[in-house]
């Protein structure tokens, strides 16, 4: 009787260390953040001294034009970069999915940007975007064109951060798409050639539909990441000019450090968290649906045998 109980508890005993680490490292900060979002809290106060204001922070934020602008910029940024990256990444993968001499070197070169620390990427691009000594404007000038205010004009600044992000993260989509492409059934490709499909028709009717499960997951991963982007934009524009590139994570960091509104910053983080949770659940739901479908298909096939 006693041993049976102990035996039943054994798995939990082994799980305990991991569970404790999870609780301390993950749940505690999140709980802390959620609690803080209900407070009117100045960094000079201890958390116990802060005034409890309920949902006031959330309500304030909804009425705050600057926050709404930031939220909108974030969504616009994520939508634009992920769309561009998907098109470029998948397109490159389709182009480079072949056996040419030196292709492995080329592939490695393509994924280099992803390996560079974001801060370095930001600095690199800032020098390239420099109004007088940057390579872009010097090239434009030597070709006889007007220099472009890369980082000092609102719409150009947005385009500039988008370009930098696309440069860094297209490779991520590229390698995942390439892996998906290379695991496609070769004989189905050959069958479609015999059936008379041109290269384009093969891509549209065979390759893309078969890659779709991978593409959907890739898209969601990139979206989640794009919503959290900080360093590159921080270094490039610090959110300016005006609020044109002030994405949410930047605003959160400024609310906490410059405006000294810890409670409001926590509430903002929670809005972002809610958005990401929705996306993550969408991904989960999609995976579940795909799994359920495959299981159902397999069952149907087995019954038929």
């Amino acid at each position: 009787m006693q041993t049976a109980n102990v035996n039943r508890l054994t798995p939990y005993l082994f799980l305990a260390p991991a569970a404790i680490v999870m609780a301390v490292a993950l749940l505690y900060p999140i709980g802390y953040m959620i609690y803080a979002s209900f407070l009117n809290w100045n960094p000079s106060q201890r958390i116990g001294e802060a005034e409890f204001v309920g949902l006031q922070n959330y309500v304030n934020l909804l009425g705050d034009a600057a926050f709404r602008e930031s939220f909108f910029v974030t969504i616009k940024f994520a939508a634009v970069v992920v769309t561009l990256e998907m098109f470029l990444g998948v397109g490159l993968a389709l182009l480079l999915d072949r056996n040419i001499r030196g292709m492995s070197v080329l592939r490695t070169l393509f994924i280099l940007p992803m390996m560079i620390a974001p801060i370095v990427v930001g600095l690199m691009w800032r020098y390239m975007y420099h109004p007088s000594v940057g390579i872009f404007n010097r090239t434009l000038k030597s070709l006889g064109f007007e220099p472009i205010p890369w980082l000092s004009d609102g719409s150009w600044a947005f385009a500039s951060v988008v370009i930098a992000d696309v440069w860094q993260w297209t490779p991520f989509i590229f390698i995942l798409s390439l892996a998906a492409l290379q695991s496609l059934p070769q004989s189905a490709m050959e069958a479609s050639r015999i059936d008379g499909a041109t290269g384009w028709q093969q891509i549209i009717y065979i390759k893309l539909p078969l890659m779709m499960p991978v593409l959907v997951v890739t898209l969601l991963l990139r979206l989640i990441d794009a919503f959290k982007v900080l360093e590159v934009i921080l270094v490039l524009t610090n959110g300016g000019p005006g609020l044109s590139t002030e994405i949410l994570s930047l605003r959160i960091s400024r609310t906490a450090s410059e405006f000294r509104e810890l409670g409001e910053a926590a509430a903002m983080s929670n809005y972002l968290l809610i958005l990401l949770i929705i996306l993550t659940f969408a991904m989960f739901a999609y995976n579940k649906a795909v799994e359920a479908r495959t299981a159902r298909l397999r069952k149907a096939a087995e019954e038929d045998l």
Binding site: P185, S187, A188, E190, A191, S192, Y205, I206, P209, L210
Partner: peptide
Amino acid sequence: FQDYALYPH
């Protein structure tokens, strides 16, 4: 084809 090569989708 030997493995039938049907289009799975």
